[in-house]
Design a protein around this nucleic acid. Structure first.
Lengths: 220, 220
DNA sequence: TTCTGATTCAAACAACTGTTTAATTCGTCT
DNA sequence: AGACGAATTAAACAGTTGTTTGAATCAGAA
């Protein structure tokens, strides 16, 4: 029983690895079962044998990715434990940027989570519940504190999206690649994290200042 | 010659309209020729007859969209003519948000331009040259002035992307739809524009302040 | 009207997709 | 060795895709 996985689990693992890489790079629709099996050096029927169908493989890839990424988020939260809100914000952005921008398999898992938002599949609900909601709730608490507003305030919601938008955007993509700027320098991981931190903290401060002078609040 | 367009140009126009809508909603790969022809009440062979092939139709849709959107950008630039940098920035963001968030056909054309960045086709180069480069150059001039830095400075590049990221993000998408917040209020067009303006201007100001105190510049 | 060229149509085409099948190979236990 | 179940394989399957074909239809000129 336990040892039946001599040959078995090995091609299964190869399929999962190849599928993770390809799905992250091109998305569910653009990756064919044949391409996965070619990359995993397996027969075309291997996907159906081990995972039922293509969607079953995708489901398992995404669930594995969600587990790893969720653990990563927990680390990012733990890194700010006991610190004041501003430092918790810095820690969160820094760790997130590291995992998204650095090369390697961790990067791919993050990419899968982002892709599900841009190009949703039937797994969207699962990913939102397990990955995105916890993140946004945590970050919402921090931003609310920094803005001096309750976490469910609309202004907190918008500020949250502003932060999220920046983290996503700086992932090198076709946009930046041909803008005539030196992309390698602009999107340097460390610089980007510090940029987002400084830019966002200033934005929070602007809200704080506006809230302190109610007469100007309408302008915001 | 001139009047041969009785029946001819009409189905051609219907195909272009249907294709524009569908491509904007689902993207090139997810829209079938048959779906376009069904929506345009035309025969399956109509696309190949009028545009050569599917890609020819997509090319024409995107080129038409680029023309309209480019004109729109010119209007946004003209709206800030002669005004100081901060007011030019406000005008640019406001007009952009209007066109992206408001319902209607204008919205779809913008969406096509954004989609080409997320899911590039062979038309990417054309769209970057005709739509994105002019926009980023104009906005780069404004942001450079507001930051007190030359337009080609890396920090200007990052600030540019921060603004762009926010404008893109607030377009309602699956992310926001299930975050447990009241999305209709958070992404209200007018509020979003003012939020992005306030948030970004504060970010610019932070850079300005940091530049004025060189000792702290390394932190940013 | 008759002719001509452009347009439309139903049908079929070839290539690709995910999936299934039935035979074969492999590892493991008796 | 022999037997059994799990895993792999080549081949085929059914459905969808973009595209082509050749006949039918239409509008306008001679």
């Amino acid at each position: 029983m336990t040892t039946r996985g001599g040959r078995d689990r090995r091609t299964r693992k190869r399929l999962l690895d190849a599928a993770t890489r390809l799905f992250a790079e091109r998305g569910l629709k653009y990756v064919t079962v044949r391409a996965i099996c070619r990359a995993a050096r397996a027969n075309v029927a291997a996907v159906n044998y081990h995972f039922g169908d293509k969607m079953g493989l995708y489901r398992e890839v995404l669930e594995d990715a969600a587990s790893v990424v969720t653990k990563m988020t927990a680390e990012a939260i733990a890194a700010g434990e006991g610190l004041p809100a501003e430092e918790r914000f810095r820690a969160y952005v820094r760790i997130n940027c590291q995992h998204i921008f650095r090369a390697g398999p961790k990067n791919r898992l993050q990419q899968l989570m982002h892709r599900e938002l841009q190009e949703p599949t039937e797994m969207l609900d699962t990913i939102i519940e397990r990955v995105w909601k916890p993140r946004f709730e945590y970050l919402g608490g921090i931003v609310g504190e920094l803005l001096g507003l309750p976490p469910d305030d609309d202004r907190v919601g918008r500020a949250l999206l502003s932060v999220h938008a920046q983290i996503v955007m700086f992932k090198p993509s076709p946009v930046q690649l041909r803008m005539g700027r030196n992309v390698e320098r602009i999107v340097d991981p460390a610089d980007v994290a510090e940029h987002i931190i400084a830019f966002s903290l200033a934005g929070f401060e602007a809200y704080r200042a506006a809230a302190a002078v109610p007469a100007a609040a309408g302008r915001l």
